[in-house]
């Protein structure tokens, strides 16, 4: 087994080969979920991909099409807008 595969920062994925044999493939771990900057809850509509793959996605695939999309969750966005309007 190559030395670089010993590190636990790689994810072990068992795969069946066409010949029927089962092997272990080593994959990079995905980054954590995007979080709302206000309440810290995980954000919807934001994929969890490695940066190299995120580049291949189009802009609308990376965040929802809302003001503060991808930064604030919908609840925090609504309360923020309501506060601004009520001022």
């Amino acid at each position: 087994m190559a030395v670089k595969h010993k590190s636990r920062s790689l994810r072990r994925v068992s795969r069946k080969l066409p010949g029927g044999k089962v092997t272990i493939q080593y994959k990079k771990r995905k980054p954590g979920r995007a979080k709302c900057s206000n309440c810290g809850k995980p954000l919807m509509g934001v994929p969890r991909e490695l940066p190299s793959k995120m580049k291949t996605l189009s802009k609308t695939e990376k965040r929802p099409e809302r003001p503060y999309g991808g930064v604030l969750c919908s609840k925090c966005m609504r309360s923020k807008i309501i506060k601004e309007v009520r001022k």
């Binding site: 099409e65 809302r66 003001p67 919908s74 966005m77 609504r78 807008i81 309501i82 601004e84 309007v85």
Partner: peptide, 11 residues
């Protein structure tokens, strides 16, 4: 009034 949710929020 001001729309507070959706794509056209804050309008």
């Amino acid at each position: 009034c001001v729309k507070i949710s959706g794509r056209e929020a804050n309008k």
